[in-house]
Design a protein around this nucleic acid. Structure first.
Lengths: 345, 345
DNA sequence: TAGTCCTACTTAAACGTTTAAGTTAAAAAC
DNA sequence: GTTTTTAACTTAAACGTTTAAGTAGGACTA
């Protein structure tokens, strides 16, 4: 491994001069700079990030917390998309991405905070974790620059999809199709997205003079197809059934469609279904899913921008939600009410 | 931030004693150890990984190269699964995962090798990249402990799915169903997996005394649904059509099924389709995809095991392929030949 | 001509660890 | 009672950078 010392010995300049020449300081002669850079290249010099980080207190590394308790982890299509774009954006600014975990080795556990400090990350991006946990709280209270996706905490920027207008669009769309009996399978209400989508469902319904029936609100906490299936079964068991269902997640919607089919009915002929997320999968199933598409690229990029601005001290860490707009994408799982088949009464 | 020096000043012991006490060396008195650890805890001491790495030449960080030129990146379901398990396995051994890229900041570009050396990673796991590139070659030739997925290079362990036995199973399965006219949509033959699957398709066919027709071999280089769709169109335009198609990837298979449907035919009634990968998506489409499931968990875990053994010097870096077994999963996209509908002649 | 200002460097300390090589005093050996 | 061993600690250097402060000499100023 070549170090500054090696270049210093070879060229006769001091280590300081080598360092300053390589970093392009103005108090070094132009021919010295050229000489030093040539020798550095020739000797295959590569700066040591640990030494630099130790001295400068800047690691050029960003920690990512991706702690999916459901165990699906990186495979989660939505988060993976956001992370992908976030990664590209911070890399473009010169940062590397490091995963921060609670687990470190076989030992009991560290906390996110400890792990972040130990590795001297310049900032942290929280994609998902258990927000009630003390480990998360500890991190949130610290002064490590942090941006979090879809969760509002003290002192931390929250990057979230703007559910409001697109959910209004969903209700408008369904009303336009003649639906009035609209149900909602909602996500975990302890969770920012789950809570907000539910709130906006209710307010959008009322705004359109549609009744919000309590038996038409069913929980699908963990956003899985299984929960969507079970929730839809509950809805189908109601005497006066809904003709349309808005689901807080695409996987819930896919489960719901399965339940509809397993009950001998058809989507969208008997029940229209709308999802939320816009994952690729929705395009491959039959019928193709009408859904609210979250702009994952924009979410990743915006998260990166805010985090870097906080790191650079351009903006302060505050509890503020930055909304990313969403888009209703109409596909095949929603249909005009009056075409409903006779067997569905 | 608390350092060893702070604890040293508070307790009166030397920095060395503090360090050795915290690291559990045997030449420190038991009550000293207790005292030091208590004070460390009380002062919120967290070891600085940069300083430690600088001195010990061990960063407890593993670099991951995930350089999907197709641009799909982290969203790729197969690689994401492998990475997820790899990550868990190395984290359990105390390592963190850092993404290694060619791009570093806005500047021209670094190489993977430079990036890995700069961040002093202890090893590198190559999930996917352009294996022909000089950047990859440079890394492969270096003596950085490296394990690569599905590609054979000099001096590097290759972790790959065992295509042989499962592809034989595929052919057996199709033959059992009465198929003899079997086509293959193959992946990039410059790529280890693409090449091997094609080879094993041919040898398995011959072993079963089935003819391998050259017009039944169509390329689907980049494994996308679009390529599968196009390749299937070519196959359907042949006078004496195949009754079954084995695709080198699930996305190819999904595209192929679409082409079949768009041609007014049905899968599996008119053409049976078999995929390769076992991605979740295959279970959500209609018909559910018969496919060869790659054991992504096992691949991730095995890659981690080998890499750590190389890092620890337990085994040497050599050009050797470690095969992970695969499994034929029969679902709905394959069917008995004699049930084929009349319109398909 | 003396003073000031540049330019192009160097010295030395520091960042927070680890570790080889001591040191000291008490205990054990003979 | 002297020597040897051991336990429990310390000193000082090192890892590879960056950086505040300094220096030497030439050029400009007045």
């Amino acid at each position: 491994m070549t170090t500054l010392k090696d270049i210093s010995q070879k060229t006769g300049y001091s280590i300081t001069t080598i360092s300053r020449a390589l970093n392009g300081y103005s108090d070094i002669g132009t021919d010295t700079i050229k000489k030093v850079r040539d020798v550095a290249l020739e000797m295959g010099y590569i700066a040591n990030a640990s030494a630099r980080s130790l001295k400068t207190r800047k690691s050029w590394t960003i920690g990512v917390i991706f702690d999916e308790h459901s165990g699906i982890g990186l495979r989660h299509p939505l988060f993976a998309n956001v992370l992908e774009e976030f990664k590209k954006a911070v890399e473009y600014e010169g940062y590397d991405v490091l995963f921060i975990t609670r687990q470190k080795g076989k030992k009991p556990t560290t906390s996110f905070y400890n792990h972040a400090i130990e590795k001297s990350v310049d900032g942290v991006f929280v994609l998902c974790t258990d927000y009630q946990s003390s480990e998360y709280q500890e991190l949130a209270k610290s002064n490590i620059p942090t941006v979090v996706l879809d969760h509002l905490s003290n002192n931390i920027y929250n990057i979230a999809s703007d559910n409001r207008s697109s959910i209004a669009d969903v209700i408008n769309h369904l009303k336009d199709l003649g639906h009035t009996k609209i149900a909602h399978i909602f996500g975990d209400p302890l969770n920012f997205a789950g809570l907000k989508r539910r709130e906006h469902f209710i307010s959008s319904m009322l705004l359109q003079d549609l009744d919000v029936r309590s038996d038409f609100l069913v929980e699908g906490t963990t956003y899985t197809t299984e929960e969507g299936y079970a929730a839809m079964k509950v809805l189908l068991s109601i005497e006066d059934k809904p003709t349309a269902v808005f689901c807080a997640g695409d996987m819930l919607a896919i489960g719901a469609i399965r339940a509809i089919e397993d009950a001998g009915l058809k989507c969208p002929d008997d029940v229209s279904v709308v999802g939320f997320d816009g994952i690729d999968l929705g395009d491959y199933i039959t019928p193709k899913l009408t859904t609210v598409k979250q702009k994952t690229k924009s979410m990743g990029r915006t998260s990166a921008d805010y985090l870097i601005n906080i790191i650079d001290g351009v903006i302060k860490n505050v509890a503020k939600t930055v909304y990313i707009d969403t888009e209703l994408v109409i596909k095949e799982s929603t249909k005009l009410l009056n075409t409903i088949s006779v067997k569905y009464k």
